[in-house]
Amino acid sequence: TTYKLIANGKTLKGETTTEAVDAETAERVFKEYAKKNGVDGEWTYDDATKTFTVTE
């Protein structure tokens, strides 16, 4: 399944996707990606669109 991340960070803005077996796995991947890019904010997830959003 393809999951999408929308990053609304102070230093990183944009979108990326990952293939994962479930939302929990995708969330781990995206949180690691955000951490590597210095983004720390509020996370939301929309199951209907398989989209995570992080906003600083």
Rank of each mutant, 00 (worst) to 15 (best):
T2E: 07
V54H: 02
T17K: 08
W43H: 00
D22N: 12
A34N: 02
T51Y: 02
L12T: 07
K13M: 12
K4L: 08
T55G: 04
W43N: 00
T51V: 06
D40I: 14
E32G: 05
G38I: 04
Y45S: 01
A26W: 01
K50D: 02
L5G: 01
K36W: 08
T53P: 00
Y3H: 02
A23W: 15
G14P: 07
V21M: 13
Y45H: 01
T25G: 08
A48W: 07
L5I: 03
E19M: 14
T49Y: 04
K31I: 06
I6F: 07
T49G: 04
E15F: 11
K13V: 11
F30Q: 00
V54P: 00
Y33M: 06
Y33I: 07
G14F: 15
A7G: 05
Y3F: 11
Y33G: 02
N8F: 14
T53R: 08
T44W: 08
V54N: 01
K4F: 14
W43P: 00
A20C: 09
Y45M: 01
D47Y: 08
A7W: 15
F52E: 00
D40N: 13
V21F: 13
T1M: 11
F30H: 01
D40L: 12
V29C: 09
T18G: 03
N8S: 09
T44K: 09
E19G: 05
G38Y: 05
E24N: 09
G38W: 04
L5F: 09
A48G: 08
I6N: 05
I6C: 07
T51G: 02
G9Q: 05
I6G: 02
E32T: 08
A34V: 10
L12W: 15
Y3I: 01
E42R: 10
D22G: 04
T44R: 08
T49I: 06
K31P: 00
F30I: 02
G41D: 02
A26N: 00
K50S: 04
N8D: 09
K36D: 09
W43A: 00
E56I: 09
N8W: 14
N8E: 09
A7R: 05
T11W: 13
F30C: 01
Y3V: 01
D22I: 03
F30G: 00
E15D: 06
E56D: 10
T18P: 02
G14Y: 15
F52P: 00
K13A: 09
T25Q: 13
G9N: 06
E27P: 00
K50W: 05
K35I: 11
G41L: 03
K13C: 15
V39D: 02
T44N: 08
T17N: 05
K4R: 13
E15A: 08
K50L: 07
E32D: 10
R28E: 06
T16W: 15
I6W: 05
I6R: 06
T51L: 04
W43F: 04
T2D: 04
N8K: 13
G14R: 13
I6L: 07
Y33E: 03
D46V: 05
N37D: 03
Y3G: 01
T51N: 02
A7I: 15
E42W: 12
Y3P: 01
N37Q: 11
D22A: 03
E56P: 07
E19N: 13
A34Q: 02
D40R: 12
K35G: 06
G9A: 13
Y45P: 00
A23V: 13
K31Q: 07
T17V: 09
Y3E: 01
E27S: 08
A34T: 06
Y45N: 00
K36I: 11
T53G: 03
F30N: 00
K35T: 09
D46I: 04
L5K: 01
Y45C: 00
G41R: 01
K10A: 11
T11E: 09
E15L: 13
N8L: 14
K10F: 12
E24S: 10
E32K: 07
G41S: 02
E19S: 10
V29F: 15
K50C: 06
V21P: 15
K31R: 15
T16G: 04
